[in-house]
Design a protein around this nucleic acid. Structure first.
Length: 716
RNA sequence: GCACCCUUAGCUCAGUUGGUUAGAGCGUUCGAUUCACAUUCGAAAGGUCGCAGGUUCGAAUCCUGCAGGGUGCACCA
């Protein structure tokens, strides 16, 4: 028996932990994460802007998935000769982070409402920066080959400057306005929210039929009815033909006699309830619109904390939930309750974070007119200038754009980019003041104060692709914009992707990316959403330590089609840990058995090579077509069940009994296929492939597999 | 209410533009081996591709309807 030619490390199983840190450091030190330092003369650029993870916690399985997918794309592009940039970032994540921090305060028995905003801001900043640097370490552990020298934070000066310029431009272009309109108010978080930040919940409540003069009105919220002085019905409703628009009548109501006025409006659904309703314009969007159409006054009934205001008389100061029953008792005593449906099923909007019911309120806020922006976005999607994977999501996207509403970008939280605007104390109007120099209202000359609000975090995130690349003059902007792919989870299609497309076109006249690849949610093995309360959270870093990062990556990518949720079973990851070890042993066997001779291949071996190359071409096409779930499975299957099970097994007798020509041919064949297989597998399993590559005596193409040329065969 | 998706082996899912006996992983059964393999190899069982029609030489794949499951959006009092 000859002494082993394979390096000693191959005598024991592959132990991912021993290699990963060292390899990552080697890659980082090589400088090849930076496209400017890549070898060769690269013409075509490739760019992914990383969706900046929220710097308010540690990475979860979903982060591991996006890192895997984006790293696959980047590594493939880099090996394939592109000027490949994957630009990392971190997101201050305004409201999200503030909510996380408020929970932390609550645990400590503190509250943000007892703190001044400077102190609160400073604390959240420290918290965020600490998380940010922790997170960067985690991204490295997952193998992310992104260019750290270009890392951007959403609160960097250059980002804020870009955001301010956009705000100003929107104002100049009359796409921005300040208006007192119905907003989604969260009584817990004390801020307004965009429609996207609310979600609907099924509730079963009591439904009250109340006598309102000669009419019966139905409501689930009697506590809003104190100020209702207008009773509205459809102009075509025959039942109420005798009542004329503007007609007034006296009636007994919650706190005594009032005068009510009849209003006819076509928005009323004649088939719902009694076909008659009273309106509460301050606390209901439909009612607000009716009031506006008919120039009716409106009055606030519920305060910002969800308590009744003095208009409620004896109920003033009560929480609305507590007041409801008492109000009904009083109405019953007056004989004004006709009947009560005990189980009225309906949907109510709730805050997406605390699930408390949204209280619609009228508030002066900054709004962006979305229709003109949406039309252009729709246009680029229709004309395939942006391709959204999957088609399903493209349809959903178009549907949403077609019915878009104006976007409230004001938030009453401290953790965010301050809105560079002034508010007039006299006329209450607002105006943009980027340089913070205005002291008087341009309209009425009144004294002004700084707008205390901050931007919706998605307003700045929506400008991420061009803000990070140094729009308008930066070299990176010229080289890499429009970027190649935007890869993110489908749940932020509207929050983020849509806004990036709209604001990107608006600012740069170009789409910010050519492809949108949407991945699904990572669920647990049973298909349940991971959550701390269920205790089924899979921490990617733990998994990576137990099975190796490569195995985790394969578990996340094989069979995971775009846009579809993935059930992540640790047993699946275990299977790929075995595969890493299999590959390790294949390497050992090839190193021990094969000699690089450059011999001519036999007819038989030529056929085997041809078969492999055909598969390699398929894998390349799959990568180009974003079919990572197929590409990964194909190379896995080939290496294990063709290369190892067939080629190596049939080589054993050849090496023992074959002619010299057969042996040499086989040796060349195995070396050739094995080397190219490592390349094909590298984007998916970067660590083990690189570890093996570093031990190959015949690596001619490149010292580092990460920049080895992608196998493309012209003679096919 | 409007819009969209899914239903394929015991389980989790692939199946790229319709094309020969529908695939993988895990699980199950049987056998071999420890001679690269903290094992591995070989083999087997298991599916009327939700249901009913239609288009086609040919449908898991395209069309229509139905059933079940899920998702997005919306101001129903």
């Amino acid at each position: 028996m000859e002494p082993s030619k394979a390096p000693e490390q191959f005598l024991k199983p592959y132990n991912a932990i021993e290699h990963e840190d060292t390899l990552y450091r080697m890659w980082e030190k090589s400088g090849y994460f930076n496209p400017d330092k890549l070898p060769g003369n690269r013409k075509e650029s490739f760019c992914i802007i990383m969706p900046p993870p929220n710097a308010n916690g540690s990475l979860h399985a979903g982060h591991a998935l996006f890192v895997t997918l984006e790293d696959i794309m980047t590594r493939f592009a880099r090996m394939d000769g592109k000027k490949a940039l994957w630009l990392p970032g971190a997101d201050h994540a305004g409201f999200e982070t503030q909510v996380v921090y408020e929970k932390k305060l609550e645990k400590e028995g503190r509250s943000r409402f007892d703190m001044n905003s400077e102190d609160l801001y400073k604390e959240i900043l420290d918290f965020t920066l600490a998380n940010k640097s922790y997170m960067e370490g985690q991204l490295r552990a997952l193998g992310a080959s992104c260019d750290w020298s270009r890392e951007v934070f959403t609160l960097d000066d250059k980002v804020i400057k870009t955001v301010y310029d956009t705000f100003k431009k929107l104002s100049d272009d009359k796409l921005l306005y300040r208006g007192s309109r119905i907003v989604n108010w969260c009584p817990k978080h004390q801020t307004s929210l965009s429609n996207l930040e609310t979600t609907r919940q099924n509730r079963t409540d009591k439904f009250y039929y109340l006598k309102y003069g000669p009419f019966t009105i139905a409501t689930a919220r009697p506590e809003t009815k104190f100020g209702d002085k207008y009773v509205v019905m459809h102009p075509d409703d025959a039942r109420y033909a005798e009542y004329k628009d503007g007609q007034q009548f006296e009636l007994e109501w919650i706190n005594g006699n009032i005068t009510a006025t009849v209003v006819k409006d076509e928005s009323i659904d004649m088939s719902f309830g009694s076909g008659v309703m009273t309106i509460t314009p301050w606390h209901d969007a439909t009612d607000f619109e009716i009031a506006q159409r008919h120039h009716l006054p409106y009055e606030q009934i519920i305060d910002w904390r969800g308590k009744l205001l003095p208009i409620a008389g004896e109920f003033a100061g009560m929480n609305i939930k507590d007041a409801r029953g008492k109000i009904i008792e009083k109405l019953q005593a007056k004989g004004l309750v006709e009947k009560i449906d005990e189980a009225y099923a309906h949907e109510v909007p709730v805050c997406y974070k605390c699930e408390r019911e949204i209280e619609p309120q009228i508030k002066a806020q900054w709004f962006v007119k979305m229709k003109p922006l949406a039309e252009k976005a729709l246009d680029v999607v229709e004309n395939n200038h942006v391709k959204i994977l999957t088609e399903n999501h493209e349809k959903i996207f178009k549907h949403w754009l077609g019915d878009i509403q104006d976007w409230n970008i004001s938030r009453q939280i401290v953790w965010g980019i301050p809105i560079p605007a002034k508010i007039c104390d006299s006329c209450n109007d607002g105006f943009v003041d980027i340089d913070d120099t205005a002291t008087k209202c341009p309209k009425c000359g009144g004294a002004v104060r700084k707008d205390p609000d901050t931007f919706d975090t998605w307003f700045s995130s929506g400008q991420w692709p061009f803000a990070t690349l140094g729009y308008p003059d930066g070299q990176d902007f010229k080289t890499f914009y429009p970027t190649t792919v935007m890869e993110t989870m489908y749940d932020i299609l509207f929050f983020w992707v849509a806004r990036m497309i709209m604001l990107g076109i608006y600012r740069t006249s170009e789409i910010p990316f050519k492809y949108v690849y949407l991945h699904g949610m990572v669920r647990d093995a049973k298909g349940l959403k991971m959550s701390k309360s269920k205790g089924n959270v899979i921490n990617p870093l733990d998994v990576s330590k137990e099975y190796g990062t490569d195995a985790l990556r394969m578990g996340l990518v094989v069979g995971n089609t775009p846009g579809t949720d993935l059930n992540l079973d640790p047993r699946k990851i275990g299977a790929y840990k075995k595969f890493a070890n299999k590959l390790w042993n294949i390497a050992r066997w090839v190193l021990e058995s094969c000699e690089a001779t450059g011999a001519t291949l036999t007819e038989n071996d030529t056929a085997a090579l041809k078969e492999f190359r055909a598969l390699a071409a398929e894998i390349t096409a799959d990568l180009e077509g974003f079919r990572f779930h197929l590409a990964s499975e194909k190379i896995y299957h080939y290496i294990w069940h063709t290369f190892a099970d067939k080629l190596i097994e049939e080589s054993k007798p050849i090496f023992t009994n074959g002619t010299q020509a057969d042996k040499d041919s086989r040796s060349s064949l195995l070396i050739e296929i094995f080397s190219d297989s490592l390349k094909l597998l590298h984007p998916f399993m970067p660590f083990v492939t690189e570890a093996i590559w570093q031990s190959l005596p015949w690596k001619k193409d490149a010292d580092i597999l990460m920049v080895a040329p992608w196998p493309r065969y012209t003679d096919q």
